[in-house]
Amino acid sequence: MHLPHHGRYDYSAIPRRPDYSFPDGKRLGIYFALNIEHFAFGAGLGHAVSNELPPPDARTFAWRDYGNRVGVWRLFDLLEEFGLPACHLVNTAVFDYCPEVIEPIIARGDEIIGHGRTNAERQGQWWEADEAHMIAAVRDTILERTGRAPRGWMGPWMSQSRVTPDLLKEAGYLFEMDWPCDDQPIWLRTRDGGKLMSMPYSLEINDSPQVLVRHHSGEEFANMIVYQFEEMLRQSERQPLVLGIALHTMIVGQPHRLHSLRKAIEHIVNHPQRDKVWITRPGEIYDHCAALPPGIMV
């Protein structure tokens, strides 16, 4: 029986793949991903911490907006406190609504990942021409406003159409983060005969589904980060692995959750086996893996 399949990658069992290491022989790559988003008022999609009210829902809009007004700044401070690099999944609406948020990202030398125009929309059901236009417009806006085009992509809500990887490749993106199928970077096939890298990005170590959908506390989410780190560090003795820690400014930017997140980060940066860990950005992971000899990456 042949079930419908996307055709982007073939099945591959992780223990049967070729081995490799990250720079300086490190085995576990970690990146911190801040989702920086802006939403329409009274329309479209959006995160919600409780039951939404009939539109216009000022309460829920304001809770989301806390992330840009307060939460992101607390997270910038936390990154500075521990000297951590980061990537930032930025809606281009942020450049016009709160451009001050972009300034520290550029000053830090962090990476901006294309994250659509706004998380009030998702493009997976759009016509191909409309999706292609949006993907290119995001690229062009980031290039114009920062001087550097984004190399990576994360769709709003991780949304994908049947041709999203093709459109990303054709627009010049090198990797995307919407296929949470693996703990290693893998190649996705594209219709031009080329390849687009899929960067591991977890639905599990992600504050949005854990806190907003599964209703875990900030302390429980911080424990998930620690447990994931410890187990992946152990597993990385056999295979190189990537741990992405996905954070949203309006969620872990709240003080009570930030307190727990700080403890999880302290655990990682002060770990006795810290020398086996590469804390980096997705673009650096891409550069390292894309330079491996052919046949090493699946």
Results as ranks from 00 to 15, higher is better:
L79E: 02
D140G: 02
E100D: 15
A129R: 15
A93M: 11
D77N: 12
A137W: 07
A129H: 15
I105P: 02
P99E: 01
T118S: 14
E111R: 07
D96C: 07
V138H: 03
H115W: 07
T141D: 04
T118D: 00
V70P: 05
E111C: 04
R139V: 02
N91Y: 10
V90T: 14
V90W: 02
L78K: 10
D77M: 08
D130F: 12
Q123Y: 14
R74T: 06
W126N: 05
E128H: 10
T141H: 03
I106Y: 06
F76L: 05
R69N: 12
A107Q: 11
H88R: 06
L78M: 11
T92E: 01
R117P: 00
E100C: 09
E80D: 15
I142L: 01
A136I: 08
I112C: 07
G116Y: 08
R69T: 14
D96Q: 13
V101G: 09
I112H: 04
Q123P: 14
R69M: 12
I112E: 01
L75A: 06
W126A: 03
E131R: 08
G124D: 11
P104M: 04
T141Y: 01
E111Q: 08
E128N: 12
M134D: 09
C87W: 02
P85E: 10
F76Q: 04
V101T: 13
L143Q: 13
D130I: 05
I113R: 02
L84G: 03
D130T: 11
R139A: 07
R145S: 01
D110Q: 02
I106T: 09
W126K: 04
E111P: 05
N91M: 03
F76E: 09
L143D: 08
A107F: 05
V94G: 07
F95C: 06
E80R: 14
N91V: 08
Q123D: 15
I102D: 00
F95T: 08
E128V: 15
G114E: 03
E111G: 04
E100Q: 13
V90D: 03
